[in-house]
Design a protein around this nucleic acid. Structure first.
Lengths: 195, 195
DNA sequence: GACGCTATTGAACAGGTGGCCAACAGGTGC
DNA sequence: GCACCTGTTGGCCACCTGTTCAATAGCGTC
């Protein structure tokens, strides 16, 4: 299948390095194929290692899934919010942000999110992680809006609505349900949230 | 586990009746535990029948899942939109509608929807069905808004945004992520969509 | 160069999955 | 009462899942 981080498995690595290699393989796998694809054997094959070794470093699969989810979405948040440059105009800023978030190139992360809501309902470790990451997104957006929003917009609920809309649309896009073009979509979303 | 429609399986039913019994069992099962719970054996156990009999009536599991999804969400749509009485005021109408859709008692259907977006990305039969049902929801909402919306609101995009928000919030609620109370939520959602 | 620590393996476990098929048995018509 | 038709069954296949554990083999130390 995929050769990313394959073959690079000479035997007997220092534990920390081996662990990093396994986690990286799991993150890559989940990014490509979703959290549901995270099985001991699939990760092992990806890293080029025995299933038993994966189980050795991460004895409980449920918790590993939660960790991998956390790694993926934290990286996404950092990538999107961390490097985001504000212009001073809320509308322009959020317009760009929503376009980034709704871009089809992010469908892989969208799949991870959607599966996290489903799996997180029964996997408590994952559920906690999902809530935590969503809190961070919410407060991140809230801060961003507050900085340039002025008095006309209430940051907390605006961030809340924005998250719901973007997540809903991302979920819809997984099954290729896209009645409108994305640019128009982003504009209308903003108009709705900013009032 | 659950005794709904159990035990009522005297042997040799007329095919149509047996089929209905199996489909009903599958629908009940998916409603309680999600589409992922739809396995040949689980359905058979629920109906009180041999796994082979389920496979006999529904030879391809992927298509059966798509059918069950269609049955569940069509019934939900009929239940919600079919009996919906409009007052003449868009705001009041949608307020009630959103409160109904976001009620925690609908978490089971929410789970079915969220899993459908995930599974529908790889199960093409399901994907088609999901898009079809979403089209029906979209046009249903659009009609409802058009009837009483007046000139201030553009029905199509309003329905579109409403769906995205409600679906996003429903997904979030699966992992118990509920920063605001639902009533306030519904009000703000409407204010956003109606402008 | 031999030894010891431990990273890594192979194999097995018990349980799950969808799908297939020959054989059984209940209901109906003769 | 017998025979046919077919709804229904039990059993099998190949493959998947997480988890456990004794045995192997690589690397650093002496």
């Amino acid at each position: 299948m995929n050769t990313t981080s394959r073959a690079a498995a000479p035997r007997r690595l220092p534990p920390e390095e081996r662990e990093r290699s396994i986690v990286r393989g799991a993150v890559d796998l989940a990014s490509e194929s979703g959290l549901e694809a995270l099985t001991v054997r699939a990760i092992a094959a990806k890293v080029g290692v025995t299933p038993a070794l994966v189980a050795h470093y991460r004895p409980v699969m449920e918790e590993f899934v939660a960790d991998v989810f956390g790694d993926i979405v934290a990286a996404e948040r950092e990538e999107v919010l961390g490097e985001f440059v504000q212009t001073g105009d809320v509308r322009d800023d959020l317009q760009r942000l929503v376009e980034i978030l709704l871009d089809t190139s992010r469908d892989d992360v969208a799949m991870v999110w959607v599966q996290s809501w489903s799996l997180g309902a029964r996997n408590e470790a994952l559920g906690r992680r999902v809530r935590h990451e969503m809190d961070l997104w919410q407060s991140g957006l809230e801060d961003l809006i507050r900085r340039t929003g002025g008095d006309s917009v209430d940051p907390a609920p605006a961030a809340w609505l924005l998250l719901a809309m973007v997540d809903g649309m991302s979920a819809h896009s997984l099954v290729k349900w896209t009645p409108h073009d994305r640019a128009d979509l982003a504009r209308r979303t903003l108009a709705a949230v900013l009032g």
